[in-house]
């Protein structure tokens, strides 16, 4: 069995174990309501994490996703407050906005050859500020809590049976993205660009275009999340999504996509997202201080990364040893 498969099995095992522990510790954990809410939480992070996984596969990073959520939710709320336009007009506009921001990120990264993290940190600042400015304000200039009444928009926060729509969308998107990555040429290009950009270019792949496309998709996913988030809250605040990038990074890393590029898949991310959501839910259900949460998220990133490097080292040494033995044997055979 491959290293990543074992890793995933361990993760699923842990997921189940934590789940059982939690349901013993607090009976309200194992209720349909709580589980569906947990899934909803996971899905909101997860949709962004899907886009982010593609970014990591190209060995990049996108710190602006949280701010994209903020700005797109502000775009929607402005449309809702000041225009009579129907949802099926402004929602596509908001999604397009997410793509456009991704394009800008990708442009700066590919054209000016600037480090991804600094470009996206800068756009993060710019977008977070713009979101505050764009927020709907009352006459005294304070941010107004607009209650969304547009039914088409609110439908995004509804359920089908017990399952939230966002959860369904999350899984459908995960399936489609995984399919895209593994079964289309463009998806293959994403892996190639991340694994070895020089070789990818030699094989005729336009790596710049691939990168820009990936950042656009990441922006799109963030924008999509903002709509589900606003629909669920029935309002939108300029702080929506700010700081959520750490949740997303943690989810993707738990899922097993490394920073080094060329590797990763969506199902790992889905498991990682569920894992993180479970832990966050557990902190809540165990009545722990909410301040534990950032410690856990930041800590998980460091611990998982360190463990992965350790294990990879170990596995490589073992593989090298067995390869040498094999070679010796074949030499003796000749």
């Amino acid at each position: 069995m491959s290293v990543s498969a074992i890793r995933r099995l361990i993760l699923i095992g842990l997921l189940i174990a934590i789940g059982i522990a939690l349901s013993i510790a607090n009976p309200s954990f194992l209720t349909v309501d709580n589980l569906m809410t947990l899934l909803q939480e996971a899905s909101l992070t997860g949709i962004v994490a899907i886009g982010f996984t593609l970014i990591l596969i190209t060995a990049g990073i996108d710190m602006s996703i949280g701010a994209v959520i903020a700005i797109t939710s502000m775009i929607c709320i402005n449309f809702i407050s000041y225009t009579q336009l129907p949802a099926y007009i402004y929602i596509p506009i908001a999604l397009a906005m997410g793509c456009a921001i991704g394009w800008v990120n990708g442009f700066f990264i590919t054209h000016f050859k600037l480090p991804e993290f600094i470009v996206t940190l800068a756009t993060r600042g710019i977008l977070a500020g713009l979101a505050l400015i764009a927020a709907v304000k009352d006459s005294q200039g304070f941010v107004k809590n607009v209650f969304i009444q547009d039914e088409v928009f609110l439908a995004f926060g509804e359920t089908v049976g017990p399952v939230y729509i966002v959860t369904i969308v999350f899984f459908v998107l995960a399936f489609c993205t995984q399919f895209f990555l593994k079964r289309t040429r463009a998806g293959t290009n994403v892996y190639a660009t991340g694994a070895n950009p020089t070789a990818a270019r030699l094989s005729g792949i336009n790596t710049d275009r691939t990168l820009i496309g990936v950042y656009m998709f990441s922006g799109f996913c963030a924008a999509l999340t903002s709509i589900f988030l606003s629909a669920r809250m029935m309002t939108a605040m300029p702080e929506f999504g700010i700081g959520s990038e750490m949740d997303v990074i943690a989810s993707v890393i738990i899922g097993g996509t490394p920073f080094t590029g060329g590797v990763g898949d969506i199902w790992g991310t889905v498991i990682g997202t569920l894992f993180l959501a479970l832990i966050k839910n557990g902190i809540l259900k165990l009545g722990l201080s909410p301040y534990i949460q950032p410690i856990v998220i930041g800590g998980i990133i460091v611990v998982v990364v360190v463990l992965d490097v350790w294990y990879k080292d170990f596995a490589e040494k073992r593989a090298a040893r067995s390869a040498r033995q094999k070679q010796m044997q074949s030499k003796e055979g000749v």
Partner: peptide, 20 residues
């Protein structure tokens, strides 16, 4: 591990510790 990831994670958990 890329420095920005490590220090970004540190930023997050240290903030949590400070809050705690």
């Amino acid at each position: 591990v890329p420095a920005f990831i490590v220090t970004m994670a540190a930023k997050t958990y240290l903030f949590g510790v400070a809050m705690l």
